[in-house]
């Protein structure tokens, strides 16, 4: 289905080798994840839904809470979280997994990062579609403020792109990075308002809202998806600035150290 759609789109776009290259790398990345499995693409939907169900039961029946529409609360938080986690884990090893191209052919290496991001974005879009189907069973206000959602997704994309540039380069010199990143991810998972409400952070640990760039993004995406509110502009601005600073740092590190990394691949 996705392949046909892709073919349909690419046939109608003007020919551009760079876009095509990014597209084919992303498509195969995405496909490889579900390639050999019997149910294939169904896993892209089933596995996040299963996670949400488990968390929902744990946090409704074992640890009770008062957040309305709690299932959606978790879902909207996990949308962002799973995207970030999956994309950065893949990004961490990108130079190694694409070594077969990097060593042999001349091309713009940043294309690899764009395509990796794009393939994770496909999974996010699938999850978003499922989310909207699920919301039909809840009373959720649908407003024009939903149009801000792409703006927030763009923010996560810049963030992931920047983080991947930094992580993938460090990972070549310092193999322990993947272990460390796993630990950082675990910590981030719990300090982000995925299960609890944003008020918890704002009241007790306001600093966590700012040192961790995902918190604001999760809060804002929830405002749009669940409550039909516009984003908190201060948070949005802050998170954009955060992502752009990381992006400059990432590009700096990548251009400075990529050649040294290539020798150690």
């Amino acid at each position: 289905m996705l392949g046909n759609l892709g073919r349909y789109i690419t046939k109608r776009l003007p020919e551009n080798n760079q876009y095509e290259r990014i597209w084919i790398l992303a498509k195969t990345d995405f496909k490889l994840k579900y390639y050999d499995t019997f149910l294939g693409m169904i896993w892209a939907i089933a596995s996040p839904l299963f996670r949400i169900l488990i968390y929902y039961f744990v946090f409704t029946f074992i640890f009770t809470n008062k957040i309305p529409n709690y299932g959606l609360h978790i879902f909207s938080g996990l949308l962002v979280w799973m995207f970030f986690q999956e994309a950065t884990k893949k990004g961490l090893t990108i130079l190694k997994s694409k070594r077969y191209l990097i060593e042999n052919i001349k091309f713009n290496k940043l294309d690899l990062f764009v395509s990796s991001l794009l393939s994770s974005l496909m999974a996010l879009i699938v999850n978003l579609i499922v989310y909207f189907i699920v919301t039909m069973f809840f009373k959720i206000p649908i407003t024009w403020n939903l149009l801000f959602i792409p703006l927030i997704i763009l923010n996560i994309c810049i963030l992931v792109f920047a983080v991947n540039l930094i992580l993938s380069t460090i990972n070549i010199f310092f193999r322990d990075m993947s272990q460390i990143w796993d630990m950082i991810l675990l910590a981030m998972f719990w300090i982000n308002p995925i299960f609890y409400a944003k008020s918890v952070i704002f009241e007790y640990f306001p600093i966590l809202m700012y040192i961790n760039p995902l918190a604001g993004i999760i809060v804002n995406i929830r405002e749009g998806l669940m409550y039909g509110n516009p984003p908190d502009w201060n948070l949005l601005l802050y998170d954009y600035a955060y992502a752009l600073v990381l992006l400059s740092l990432g590009l700096l590190i990548f251009y400075r150290y990529f050649h040294k990394a290539a020798e150690k691949l």
Partner: peptide
């Protein structure tokens, strides 16, 4: 070297040729 082992010949041809600059 030069190919992704998990992909088919067709896919690898498309990837490699595309990375090399062919539409």
């Amino acid at each position: 070297l030069g190919f992704n082992q998990e992909l088919t010949a067709r896919e690898n041809v498309f990837i490699n040729a595309s990375v090399m600059g062919l539409t």
